[in-house]
Design a protein around this nucleic acid. Structure first.
Length: 562
RNA sequence: UGGGGAGUCGUCUAAUGGCAGGACGGCAGACUCUGGAUCUGCUUGUAGGGGUUCGAAUCCUCUCUCCCCAGCCA
């Protein structure tokens, strides 16, 4: 009955498994998950999906979710990443309480368990070289062969393993392997390596260890030690589940259930650590938090909200089939959130001078402008209006196409929260013929907010007063790649979008933005959502375009007229 | 050709033998002092064959396609 009630839009196969486990009292009704990143890179939107699943499930079922660093490979891992990961998870809105764990905290215990397996005749020290191990492993279609060292005595194995730990052997010279089945169809079961010798200091255990556990050995044990009930991971670990189960069964330990789901793929970007690292290292982007990166840090700097990301993760669902989610859905979730909460402001990105010829020279009116029409509680502000203004260059056409609602010779438009103006003429550059100034008249009877000012015109433009405007730099970001699937034609680098970043200087913004601080978000009317970049300062305001507003006119033009 | 998985609108996802539904996108319209937002309507899908059944996306069977695995990475 409860199971039925749980189904519906937010149901998924993992919840159903958990529900069944609760009903059958498999773990005493407990639900305890974990998010287990390896601290070898920055988290991305794919990790956000996993974080939302793990923390979300724990919250939904009244359980707990641990943050555990899977730090078993000191060659690749660094403390810097630990801090970045914690910041990202926290920013996304999740709390692991005091349950911040590290696989490396369990190294001693892993070692004891290894000895237990050796004593049970289930593990052995192998002297084969890495190349030989590969050779002995066989192939996908042929069984492997047993190592000549496979049947050493327990005593010999114990002695050798102890000496491995003591640092008596060279890297690569010996490993500890589980003794399972060299002819298994599942390669993971062909005597998998449990420990390798790595004479490398670890970011937490320093030089205490020179043997390090492999993922398969460490992961299930860590889960077990922490009392995890549901160990949720991605599909590529499906093949590893028999091994996960084997270790815990052989040791007769608390045995969490491993469940695999399909990792997130997003169109027009890449989500593999290797590729993201390449983008950073080869300078195609400006670092891990470049606003074009699908990393949590990049999305944050771009102006995404945690709410938008969480909502996105909820909407994409959880399943086992490989899929590619349209990045448009992420953008939709963003706009939906920002629309509700971002205060509006007027900014002119590519300024065109407008002179209201019948407006008095020295006059300045402070006009009342709503901060967010979606939310009256956000109040209003005053914006100065005067004789000389800027409008968007793109909002004026000397020779307007059909369906044009904006300014053109002889045409009227409303200036948002101000007056209706009519274009009476233009001033052009003598040499280039470019329009440098538009001359207009205003209709004094059309002031916004006045009872008699309600006359209607088709178009409404945003504007800023020349004398009062602030200058700003605006960075326009677009999709990082030109193709929905950057991998589909050879090297993904080949389809990088050369216009993924366009920097505009000399943009004019309304004076109320003077004290905007990094991270603050706005909707620039008719343009999109923008946030103050961390490069911004009092003397040089810098805004990132988070996402554009949907522009119907752009679509009309794309299709060649209405 | 070994082992493990997966195939439902363009995309993501729901259905648990009983009306194939939702979201995004798209299209059309209404409204609009943001060509934004909002609202309304519409469109499109069970990989294929055979079987069981009053009834199949769901059960059985055969086939096809796609993904993952041969790190001392995770």
């Amino acid at each position: 009955m409860e199971g039925k009630a749980r189904r519906g839009p937010s149901s998924n196969f993992i919840k159903e498994i958990i529900l069944r486990d609760i009903e059958t009292n498999r773990y005493g009704g407990r639900v305890h998950t974990r998010f287990p990143p390896e601290p070898n890179g920055y988290l991305h939107i794919g990790h956000a999906k996993s974080i939302c699943i793990n923390f979300g499930l724990a919250a939904e079922f009244g359980g707990l979710c641990n943050l555990r660093f899977d730090d078993t490979n000191p060659v690749k891992e660094e403390a810097e990443y630990v801090e970045a990961i914690k910041e990202d998870v926290r920013w996304l809105g999740f709390d692991w309480g005091d349950r911040e764990y590290y696989a490396s905290d369990y190294f001693e215990q892993f070692y004891e368990y290894a000895i237990q397996l050796i004593k049970a005749g289930k593990a052995y020290v192998d002297d084969l070289s890495p190349d030989e191990i590969r050779e002995y492993r066989g192939t996908l279609t042929e069984p492997g062969r047993e190592s000549p060292y496979r049947n050493r005595s327990v005593e010999e194995n114990l002695g050798l393993f102890e000496r491995m730990r003591a640092g008596e052997f060279e890297e690569g010279s010996r490993v500890l392997r589980a003794k399972i089945d060299m002819s298994s169809g599942n390669l993971n079961m062909r005597d998998p390596v449990m420990y390798r010798i790595l004479k490398v200091p670890h970011h937490r255990t320093a030089d205490k260890w020179c043997i390090y556990p492999m993922y398969d050995w460490a992961h299930g044990l860590s889960d077990s030690i922490e009392g995890i009930t549901h160990s949720i991971c991605t599909l590529e670990f499906e093949d590893h589940r028999p091994l996960y189960d084997w270790f815990l069964d052989e040791l007769n330990l608390h045995h969490p259930r491993q469940i695999e789901f399909a990792r997130l793929n997003l169109s027009y970007t890449v989500l593999s650590k290797r590729k993201l690292t390449r983008l950073v290292e080869e300078g195609f982007v400006d670092g891990w938090d470049d606003p074009r990166m699908p990393t949590i840090a990049g999305l944050r700097r771009r102006g995404y909200t945690p709410e938008a990301i969480r909502n996105f993760c909820e909407r994409i669902g959880v399943a086992k089939s490989d899929s590619v989610v349209d990045i448009g859905l992420l953008e939709h979730c963003l706009r939906e959130d920002l629309n509700k909460r971002a205060p509006r402001a007027m900014a002119v990105l590519e300024p065109l001078r407008v002179v209201i010829v019948n407006y008095p020279e020295e006059r300045v009116e402070e006009l009342e402008v709503e901060n967010n029409p979606e939310d009256p509680s956000m109040g209003s502000r005053r914006v100065p209006f005067s004789r000389v203004l800027y409008i968007e260059r793109g909002d004026f056409r000397e020779d307007p196409p059909k369906g044009w609602f904006r300014l053109a010779p002889g045409r009227e438009v409303r200036l948002k929260s101000a007056y209706i103006i009519r274009c009476e003429g233009v001033v052009k550059d003598g040499r280039t013929g470019e329009v440098t100034e538009v001359h207009c008249t205003y209709d004094p009877g059309t002031k916004s907010g006045t009872p008699e000012g309600g006359r209607r015109v088709k178009g409404t433009l945003h504007w800023v007063s020349e004398a009062h405007a602030l200058e700003a730099e605006v960075r326009l970001y677009d999709r990082l790649f030109l193709r929905p699937n950057p991998d589909e034609a050879g090297d993904f680098i080949d389809c990088l979008n050369p216009d993924s970043l366009k920097v505009l200087r000399g943009c004019r913004i309304e004076p109320s933005l003077k004290d905007a601080v990094p991270g603050q978000r706005f909707q620039f009317l008719r343009l999109g959502y923008f946030c103050v970049d961390r490069d911004s300062s009092g003397s040089n305001l810098v805004f990132n375009r988070t996402v554009s507003l949907k522009d119907r006119w752009a679509k009309i033009e794309r299709k060649g007229g209405p």
